[in-house]
Design a protein around this nucleic acid. Sequence first.
DNA 1: TGTACATCAGTGAACGCGCGTTCACTGATGTAC
DNA 2: TGTACATCAGTGAACGCGCGTTCACTGATGTAC
Lengths: 220, 220
Amino acid sequence: MHADIVDEARRQLATGGAASLSLRAVARELGVVSSAVYRYVASRDELLTLLIVEAYGRLAADAEQAQAAAGDDPRARWRAACGAIRRWARAHPHEYALLYGTPVPGYAAPADTIGPASRVYETLIDPVRRTAAGRRAPGRTRAVHQMAPALTANAVRLAVELDLEHVDPRRILDLLGAVAEVFGLVSFELFGHTNNVVDDHDAWFADRVEAMADALQLAR
Amino acid sequence: MHADIVDEARRQLATGGAASLSLRAVARELGVVSSAVYRYVASRDELLTLLIVEAYGRLAADAEQAQAAAGDDPRARWRAACGAIRRWARAHPHEYALLYGTPVPGYAAPADTIGPASRVYETLIDPVRRTAAGRRAPGRTRAVHQMAPALTANAVRLAVELDLEHVDPRRILDLLGAVAEVFGLVSFELFGHTNNVVDDHDAWFADRVEAMADALQLAR
DNA sequence: TGTACATCAGTGAACGCGCGTTCACTGATGTAC
DNA sequence: TGTACATCAGTGAACGCGCGTTCACTGATGTAC
């Protein structure tokens, strides 16, 4: 029953978005009186949290699976993760919006959502880690700007936490930027900001993924 | 009165987000009966459209003004536009979310919003245009991946439409990616995805802005 | 094999709330003669 | 200068809707003796 509730809630989320998800509607669809769902779920917010955690889990599972199928090449793994994220987002736009769009007003994401969210990022970090461990791409020394000391410290902290000890701080910041770009690209496409701008979104995304791989100097 | 309605609506938008904007609440706050606002506004959706158009206008005005104050240097103008966008977003998070976050469910943005939205992008395009017109940054020939023919066509079309005729198609696509990254960075920060990851958001954003300027080879 | 009891999933009614939108109306203002 | 009229901003009541949450309850199931 608990599972039925979450399933039905996900169905409604997929149809109308988080705003139009209601416990009453879930109960109605399940052929049960509205107060009955309170035996299984404490409140609407708790249900929302369940949906968020589950959505992160599904997205992460997709990305991980695609990445596993891509073999050992860092660049292939980067492509696989990016592609899986975009594919999942297009297949589940409202769930994507719940995770990466405007936060639901009045809803504060509890700590339970941090872990599942990290699993997604992990797939984007992986190719950089593998590049660092193995041989690097032919070193192109770019004339880059100076990095602020505070940023370097931040990058070093992340390197330790994310098991990227031997990665250049510069590249860790580039990776953060790339992550933001990946979700920026997907959000732009999904939320309609590229209408009349981009003709072929598949090609566009693929091109950007490759450009980011270049910028991150991922090994081929 | 019409102006009072829009003002009050914006106040409510700023407080609770688009979801909790109601005509009744606006009327209440204006000390007027709820049906009275219908003399000035046809529906909630129309009011929402007004707010969107106005928000784009304010954001664009901010960015343009900051850019004008930055002088002629393309890199300075890029920094100014990016900085102004982020500053505005942080000052008006709910309005930012209305423009670049999850689309309001059941609301279809009419064509009136395209123009104002473009004005914002224009400030990000400007530095590339100026770089192309003037001298370029020292040419670093990057070993980049092949571009799909369809994408080149797309880039050429955009070049014509955006008055970027003499800009390399490759750079036009890089610019699109940079635009996505700018809004991706701001959204990540605003929507809480960088908590416990980024320590100093000011420094982080500034660094990425510089990195994008490097990637776009903006003239200094 | 049969009775007494506990468990607990689901009921039904209610509370109190807010919303968008319509519609016939009042009553003040300003204009025309 | 004074009356008749039109305009139109704002009223008040209503329609019909949906929501989250609480609470005392029924009645079927399964267990214990």
